[in-house]
């Protein structure tokens, strides 16, 4: 018996004019899997994410979520099916408070009471309670990242896409994020894009490497990080 994968893409391609940013990607993530996506800047990782969330409609190919074809569906419908994303450039409600940001995320399809409970849980879990009433636009960059992660958690999706969650975080925050990701991973699947190799080592099991819009290699983390091709295009010589 074969299980239907949580997310599956077949031949997903995204062209902008003459540039092929994402080239014929076949990619599969199972229920409750934790997958890391690495690769050079400009390899097409963020663009690939956008084709998954409906922010971009792939030029060709298909995206299946639990067997449903969601290729090019509107973002809000994909979100309702259970995909949440923390984007690379923080997308938060700058003029609202931290609590309001998370409430808007928690509020869809829940009773007010349930939504409030979710908000409190998320605030506690991410240690945002102290700054719950601050306006998000006035927070530091790293804090806004936490707020965005909070909105994604409050949405309670089955698949969470994190585009560079550790960017701009201090070492301890990175450690905390890695712990959080493992905790989230008990019940939810994640795909994490990150350049911080320390962080990747903390969380990764299977790693997919993108290069020039294609998958260069997909394997166990140790094998990927010692792969010569990966070192050449991405890690550089210093990487251990």
């Amino acid at each position: 018996m074969t299980l239907v994968p949580l997310l599956q893409t077949t031949g997903v391609t995204m062209r902008f004019g003459g540039v092929t940013a994402v080239d014929n990607i076949d990619f599969t993530v199972g229920e409750c899997e934790l997958r890391c996506l690495i690769g050079p800047n400009g390899a097409g990782k963020s663009t690939f994410f956008k084709t998954l969330t409906g922010q971009l409609r792939p030029t060709s190919g298909h995206v299946l979520f639990r067997g449903h074809d969601i290729t090019g569906a509107p973002s809000h419908e994909i979100a309702r099916l259970g995909i949440g994303i923390k984007t690379q450039v923080p997308n938060v409600f700058n003029g609202l408070s931290v609590r309001e940001n998370i409430f808007v995320a928690a509020g869809r399809g829940k009773s007010i009471r349930h939504a409030r409970e979710t908000v409190d849980q998320v605030l506690t879990r991410l240690k945002l309670t102290d700054i719950a009433n601050r306006i998000v636009g006035q927070l530091a960059h790293g804090q806004r990242q936490w707020v965005e992660i909070g909105t994604v958690l409050a949405q309670e999706p089955d698949l969470i896409l994190l585009d560079e969650p550790a960017a701009g975080m201090t070492y301890e925050e990175v450690v905390r994020t890695s712990e959080l990701i493992r905790e989230i991973n008990r019940a939810q699947a994640l795909i994490v894009v990150e350049h911080d190799m320390q962080f990747i080592r903390m969380i990764a099991r299977t790693v997919t490497v993108f290069n020039r819009g294609r998958i260069l290699i997909e394997d166990d983390v140790e094998r990927v990080l010692t792969n010569q091709a990966v070192r050449d295009v991405y890690l550089g010589k210093a990487a251990a």
Binding site: Q55, P74, S75, H76, A79, V92, F93, V104, Q155
Partner: peptide, 21 residues
């Protein structure tokens, strides 16, 4: 009303949270 204001603040985020702006 909160969603309306949220959309004013960031339409993309609202959409990614499942609201149709």
């Amino acid at each position: 009303g909160r969603v309306v204001v949220a959309i004013r603040e960031n339409e993309t985020r609202a959409m990614l949270l499942g609201y149709d702006p």
